[in-house]
């Protein structure tokens, strides 16, 4: 059967090679669809919004005249919200992650139930948290439609993500580090606080900041809990507010077409805020790259 060998050699690979190319082509075109759409959207926003991207937009107060309107209160409130989310979600999220990874006994059903639920909560649509927040935080404990309430609700939105990211980071710390610390007579808390946590900071920081940038762009839950359209003064923790995404949303609904341009410009500002947050995340990840 010596003749059979060259036949199969000649026939076999050709089809496999062809398939290989086809698959590469498919992947490439998928990437172009994903990336092309994004680029188009970005370009459209940039072109539309560029003329209105001015100092006035950053420092001015909102107005019914598009040529005079700015978004300072909205930008400030968005930064406040981001700060609040950071202050609330990181300690709570990281401590939860530490408990689940380092302390919880997985044999116990309630710990497993908590784990599964946190995974599921990460997938709950933000509007659901808005409804929850309206009932329990705004009206329930009577915080009212203020910046703090918005911050608490956005914290709920991102908390599961922070927990999941922090757990991943903590799990990635090799056991040999824990063993080494235990061997020196450190208590469990000392091991966690002085070895595991510092070693997992890059992962935690990256995950938290990405979650934060999601929170900053969130509109739906904020509309539910009282971010409003027209606020012509700087926000305070216990005062009424509007947020940048809400401001953008409302501007797009105005009759005067001038507001559409303004909305695009404000969208660029929001994009810049989110992108700079992501840049910080990337910086942290590279700065404290894993060493083991």
């Amino acid at each position: 059967m010596t003749t059979a060998v060259p036949t199969s050699l000649a026939g076999g690979p050709r089809r496999r090679v062809w398939r290989n190319r086809l698959f590469q082509l498919a992947m490439l075109s998928c990437m172009f669809v994903a990336f092309g759409t994004l680029a188009l959207l970005l370009a459209d926003t940039l072109i539309t919004g560029w003329p209105e991207l001015s100092r006035r937009l950053l420092t001015g107060l909102p107005s019914t005249v598009p040529g005079e309107a700015g978004a300072r209160p909205a930008i400030l409130a968005t930064l406040y919200l981001g700060l609040l989310v950071l202050v609330f979600s990181v300690p709570i999220g990281v401590l939860t992650a530490i408990y689940l990874e380092e302390y919880a006994n997985r044999e116990r059903w309630w710990n497993r139930a908590i784990e599964v639920n946190i995974q599921n909560l990460a997938a709950v649509p933000a509007i659901v948290y808005g409804i929850l927040g309206l009932a329990f935080i705004v009206r329930g404990i009577g915080v009212g439609r203020v910046v703090l309430a918005g911050g608490l609700i956005l914290t709920l939105v991102v908390l599961p993500t922070v927990v999941v990211a922090s757990r991943e980071a903590i799990r990635a710390v090799p056991d040999s580090i824990r063993q080494g610390a235990f061997a020196l007579g450190a208590t469990k808390w000392q091991v966690v606080w002085r070895q595991v946590l510092p070693a997992s900071i890059p992962g935690i920081a990256t995950g938290s900041i990405l979650a934060l940038s999601r929170a900053v762009g969130e509109t739906a839950p904020l509309i539910m809990v009282g971010a409003i359209t027209y606020v012509a003064f700087n926000p305070s923790l216990f005062g009424p507010y509007t947020a940048l995404p809400v401001q953008i949303y409302n501007w797009t609904k105005q009759p005067d077409p001038g507001f559409q341009t303004l909305a695009a410009a404000a969208a660029i500002v929001l994009l810049a805020i989110v992108l700079s947050m992501n840049a910080v995340a990337i910086f942290l990840r590279n700065r404290y790259r894993k060493q083991w």
Partner: peptide
């Protein structure tokens, strides 16, 4: 020994931060 106390302290701090929000209401000057 110390681990529990630290944890409790931190949690208390978190709760205090949340609780601080309950006192406020909408400002009547707006």
């Amino acid at each position: 020994m110390g681990s529990r106390a630290h944890l409790a302290l931190l949690c208390a701090a978190c709760l205090a931060a949340i609780g601080a929000g309950c006192g406020g209401g909408t400002s009547s000057s707006v």
